[in-house]
């Protein structure tokens, strides 16, 4: 496997520093939420996980379309790396959302449009990764997973706009007009932390995918 690039190391370092400072701000500096109290602070993990899982899935979608049009295998490496990152962030989103919902709404889970579409989003991209693991020819795997990624991506705008298209228990998107300015700042700070970690992660994931690809594309060793 290739060694990590300077950019990849830098992204991890910046992301880690931002994450530590950002969580310090979120836990100790920013005021608690008026209605929710201290439990409202889970927002600073939940919302960055939501934003960056959508970003990761979008990168995966762009790379999948890019692979299908250009045939460049490095696009497939980007697609799988960002799909994996998206699935992990999506799992974090669902877990923190559940922990958030119990004390505020009163339930761990309810089948409202936002929650359901977020769960479907996770399942479909897990499906894409499962599909990858059962197809062994690298070229065919890249094509199949690119097509399935495009299909899975249909649900991303549905998830994002679900709170506006349907009645739900989940509130619609907040904006700086509905949110305390200190909270907006800390939220964005933590989102940038996760963004940098995501960029580092994409670098690592691409290197792993490239090394798997190289191994599988190599001609078989001559056996004695």
């Amino acid at each position: 496997m290739r060694p990590p690039s300077k950019a990849e190391r830098a992204a991890y370092a910046i992301g880690l520093v931002l994450l530590i400072v950002g969580h310090g701000l979120a836990l100790f500096w920013v005021p608690p939420e008026r209605m929710m109290g201290e439990v409202g602070r889970i927002l600073y993990v939940h919302v960055p996980a939501a934003w960056l899982s959508l970003v990761a899935y979008t990168i995966s979608f762009g790379a999948a379309v890019g692979f299908l049009f250009t045939g460049r295998r490095s696009m497939d490496h980007t697609a799988v790396a960002s799909a994996e990152a998206g699935v992990v962030l999506n799992a974090l989103l669902l877990a923190t959302g559940s922990l958030f919902a119990r004390p505020t709404w009163g339930v761990w889970w309810t089948w409202d449009p936002r929650l359901t579409s977020s769960a479907v989003m996770w399942l479909t991209f897990v499906g894409v990764l499962l599909l990858r693991s059962v197809v062994h020819d690298p070229e065919r795997r890249a094509t199949w997973s690119a097509v399935s990624t495009v299909m899975a991506y249909v649900n991303i705008p549905i998830t994002y706009f679900s709170v506006q298209m349907w009645r739900s228990i989940h509130q619609v998107q907040s904006n700086p007009g509905t949110m305390d300015s200190d909270m907006v700042f800390v939220l964005r700070f933590n989102a940038f932390a996760v963004l940098f970690l995501l960029l580092g992660w994409l670098g690592t994931g691409r290197r792993i995918a490239a090394s798997i690809d190289a191994r599988e594309s190599a001609p078989p060793l001559e056996s004695p």
């Binding site: 008026r34 409202g40 927002l43 509130q171 907040s174 509905t178 305390d180």
Partner: peptide, 9 residues
């Protein structure tokens, strides 16, 4: 059902 408002106390 919480609104989309997040405010300091």
């Amino acid at each position: 059902k919480h609104s989309n408002e997040y405010q300091a106390p």
